[in-house]
């Protein structure tokens, strides 16, 4: 999976977990999505299921934007 495909896949998973459209790489978890930890758990679970990458929830929670999350997952693949 190249970077572009990974970005698209993660944007799709974020959209599903947070039940929202218009997610981009610049979307901020804190300011734009304002999600609870429950949604981040759902997101991490789906990343593990769909991408075969085990990422730590604490690391995912520390991501500021969707692009940061893509970087994190890319490191694990």
């Amino acid at each position: 999976m190249d970077r572009k495909e990974l970005e698209e896949k993660i944007i799709e998973l974020v959209s599903v977990a947070y039940k929202t459209d218009n997610v981009t790489l610049e979307t901020s978890f804190k300011n734009d999505l304002k999600g609870a930890s429950v949604q981040m758990v759902a997101l991490v679970s789906e990343i593990e299921n769909e991408l075969d990458a085990t990422i730590m929830l604490a690391d995912a929670s520390a991501c500021s934007t969707v692009a940061d999350l893509v970087d994190l997952v890319e490191d694990e693949l």
């Binding site: 758990v41 759902a42 679970s45 789906e46 593990e48 299921n49 075969d52 085990t54």
Partner: peptide, 11 residues
């Protein structure tokens, strides 16, 4: 439950 077989096995 959320995790599938492979992901759960790893965890």
């Amino acid at each position: 439950t959320r995790l599938k077989e492979k992901a759960l096995g790893r965890r």
